[in-house]
Design a protein around this nucleic acid. Structure first.
Lengths: 145, 145
DNA sequence: CTAATTTATATCGTGCGCGATATAAATTGA
DNA sequence: TCAATTTATATCGCGCACGATATAAATTAG
């Protein structure tokens, strides 16, 4: 085997994503949020009344991951899940008043995180955009395989 | 909440890491390897006879994650786990003959992945290095929090 | 030498992420 | 109209990541 993990892009991504997750955890724990729940909350706060499928399209997750996560957020009183009256297959999601209040509290988290890294906002945006490019190149790679 | 997930660096990292994981899966599945097991195998292949702690230092994981993973690799016949005779607290890891053969087969996986992305090797190395820099900046961030 | 502390690994519980499958509602086709 | 297909969500099982805790061996203190 030629490459050790520290030489691999995949490991750099994997371990950095976990490190970022760990850096967010102490910011989210006082709010009672996990990191994936925070992302779902952020999506619903910026665009309410989504379906499970629409949320999954943004978060790149499917119902096998989202349904249990959303049920936990429903139990916590942050999200309502209601079957669409016109199409009973669809579940519509909305933030409760508590959910909106929590989202308002969580709004400062990305800024707090950026402050902790000491990175310029422009550097953060640049890296974000590079990662989106890489991610977009992986879909055709999967289709070929 | 100001930011939607698609605006966040943390989500770009998270979702891209999952997409890379998904792109590796079809390359690893024929070998019977999961993605974290592949990283452990790569580490042991490039530096055999490590302890659990040394492997964890490279992979940024602790025994609560590594012990079950290594037991699965031991059950598969790829890895041996033996208590150090001099210090019975330490578990030494080594690849079996089957493990070395598997590592040889897996050696082509990063190249196959790079080919699938269509990225230049230099671009891959650049992004890897940027991510390592970001990861290194997160440790002090955690210490402060 | 013994007690206290530190170190290395293991165990347990919880929340993802996902492949495989299930269920039920909507749509399509003959 | 009604059977076949498609679509949206849910369920199940497994492996990983990690906080909290346990265990046992080594080291240090007194």
């Amino acid at each position: 085997m030629a490459l050790a993990p520290s030489d691999m892009l995949c490991f750099a991504l994997h371990s950095t994503a976990l490190a970022v997750h760990a850096a967010y955890a102490p910011l989210l724990e006082p709010l009672g949020l996990t990191y994936p729940q925070y992302l779902a909350l952020a999506s619903l706060a910026s665009s309410d009344d989504q379906t499970v499928g629409q949320l999954g399209a943004e978060l790149r997750l499917e119902s096998n991951t989202l349904t249990p996560l959303l049920k936990r957020m429903e139990n916590a009183g942050w999200v309502s899940r209601t079957r669409d009256a016109r199409d009973e297959r669809v579940v519509r999601l909305a933030l409760t008043a508590d959910g909106r209040a929590l989202a308002a509290k969580a709004a400062s988290v990305p800024r707090d995180f950026a402050d902790k890294t000491g990175l310029a906002l422009s550097d953060i945006a640049d890296l974000r955009d590079v990662l989106h490019v890489l991610r977009s190149r992986l879909k055709p790679a999967l289709q070929k395989g």
